[in-house]
């Protein structure tokens, strides 16, 4: 995925410490993301481990997918609290979100390996905000992120928030991941 600077879509709101077992439960890790059809299947299981009451805040009990066999979700942006993606190193976590049609996550901060996997694989934009947006945004709100201006607008409520600059990972996201980035820098043969 090449970096889109404007990302617009519906929000799915989660809380703190959404770990990789909630993002993609271990029972689905038998799928091999290197096989395109299996990569797509990860979309269906994205967020399958989130307990129902904690999925789609503030009310909860909002399914991430319309139907149980849908590969892609109606939501494009996840808004979460602290320490998103903690737990295992499984790259299947950002892959599952990408396969489900998620373009960006907006969280207070990320667990290190999840952040690195998101950027190096070029799957999703891991945006950060100083504000606790998971208590301000409602699931279903229409959001627009502007990654150049570092802003997030809630089109449903009219509220505007600032995002932390993505900083040194921008060139990697712009290239589409660490491999295209390394090639563009001459670190790997083109």
């Amino acid at each position: 995925m090449k970096l889109e600077k404007i990302i617009q879509g519906k929000a799915y709101v989660l809380g703190d410490n959404i770990d990789t077992d909630q993002i993609i439960p271990a029972e689905y890790l038998t799928l091999n993301p290197a096989i395109p059809e299996e990569y797509r299947q990860f979309g269906r299981h994205a967020l399958a481990g989130v307990p129902a009451a904690q999925g789609g805040l503030p009310k909860g009990h909002v399914p991430f997918h319309k139907g149980p066999t849908d590969l892609v979700s109606d939501f494009q942006i996840i808004v979460a609290g602290r320490n998103f993606g903690c737990g295992s190193s499984r790259e299947h976590a950002p892959i599952a979100l990408d396969a489900a049609g998620i373009k960006a996550v907006v969280a207070e901060f990320y667990a290190r390996i999840f952040y690195r996997n998101s950027v190096n694989g070029g799957y999703i934009v891991p945006a950060e905000t100083a504000e606790r947006l998971c208590e301000k945004v409602c699931t279903g709100d229409e959001l627009r992120l502007n990654l150049d201006a570092c802003t997030m607008e809630n089109l449903t409520t009219g509220e505007k928030y600032s995002l932390r600059p993505l900083g040194e990972v921008v060139p990697i996201l712009e290239a589409g991941g660490v491999f295209p980035y390394a090639r563009s820098k001459g670190m790997l043969p083109a």
Partner: peptide
Amino acid sequence: LGTDSHTCTAGAFGEFATGIGNTDAGF
């Protein structure tokens, strides 16, 4: 480096050990 978050276990031997994803490991 290992494709598992608990790769940090090997720090017990006085080395730098950490978990990475598939893309990093492929690299």
